[in-house]
Amino acid sequence: MKVMVLLLDKASPSETDHGLLDPFVSLAEFSVSPPGGFRDHPHRGFESVTYMLQGGIIHQDFNGHKGTIYEGDVQWTTAGRGIVHSEMPAEEINNGLQLWINLPSTYKMIEPKNLEISSSEIPIAEEDGVEVKVIAGESMGVQSPFYTKTPIMFLDFTLEPRAQTHQTVPASWTAFAYIIEGDEGVFSSSDSSTVQANNVVVFGTGDEVSVWNTSSSRPLRFLLIAGEPIGESVVQHGPFVMNSQAEIDMTIGDYRNGRNGFEMAKYWRSE
């Protein structure tokens, strides 16, 4: 099992500075095969978006939810006040990306929920050598019907050789790109250096992101992710994302003692 964290502030129990990429906590690329997997584990205080690039993942949680997502599918998990779940490989080779999105303090203790979205439900727009899958937000006149509690944009772009795109982003939002495939993408400035696959590009202020595929033979595929900053203090301790160390201490106690949303943690085990 391989997990590569692409975007992550310090994961210590002390208060950390997430201001640069607020409201995002982490973006991780994972590769997992049987008998590996992400066995029963807890979360509180954020949402996650899992996007499969190859294979599939079987999800189970202590509220009785069970579902499987395959290549091109998405699962949104709102951990809220507490969830214990497992994420296990569905096929021999399974690769994907998981984005953690912070929740504002007013939503951190909401009821947890899960939603699987099949690739056939994700709207697609195409024009002039550019294809975009609109998982969240809007692009090229197409609006996603899905959303997270914290407003975000989650777009999967593929640019044919020599194609370019210009995506509007709210000026106050945090924005970054993760390159999935292609080594000759130029982001936001015509005199910028090209960016290789498996790298993150963090954008500065502005209301538009421009991307050129300068390759004459290879497509460029990347995720463009943007979100509205929350502007609150963040303390992350492993699978818990709260606003203070006191809340982290309370969360650890709640999980260990099976209370305040973790009542089923004492009894539930995944299949």
Rank of each mutant, 00 (worst) to 15 (best):
G261F: 11
G64R: 11
T174Y: 05
S244G: 05
R218M: 14
T251S: 13
W173Y: 12
H65C: 00
W268H: 07
I135A: 07
Q164E: 15
T68N: 04
G64C: 03
E92M: 06
I179P: 00
N199I: 01
V186S: 05
S105E: 13
H41C: 03
F203C: 04
N102W: 07
T148A: 11
D249A: 14
V241G: 02
Y267E: 14
A175P: 06
H18L: 12
N102H: 01
A246M: 11
L103S: 03
A197S: 13
I83M: 02
E15S: 11
A28Q: 10
R162Q: 14
L159N: 08
P123H: 04
F154W: 09
F222M: 08
S189P: 02
I58S: 10
G261V: 08
I69H: 05
L99N: 06
P35D: 02
P229S: 07
T165C: 14
D17P: 04
A197L: 02
E92T: 12
T106C: 10
P104E: 09
L21M: 15
G80W: 11
A226M: 12
T16P: 01
E131R: 15
D40K: 13
Q54H: 10
N260F: 05
G137E: 08
T205A: 12
G82N: 01
G231R: 00
P219H: 11
Q245E: 15
G185Q: 09
D73Q: 01
G37H: 05
G37L: 09
G141Y: 02
V3D: 00
P123I: 00
G141S: 04
D61E: 10
V241T: 10
S244Y: 06
L220E: 07
E29T: 07
S216F: 09
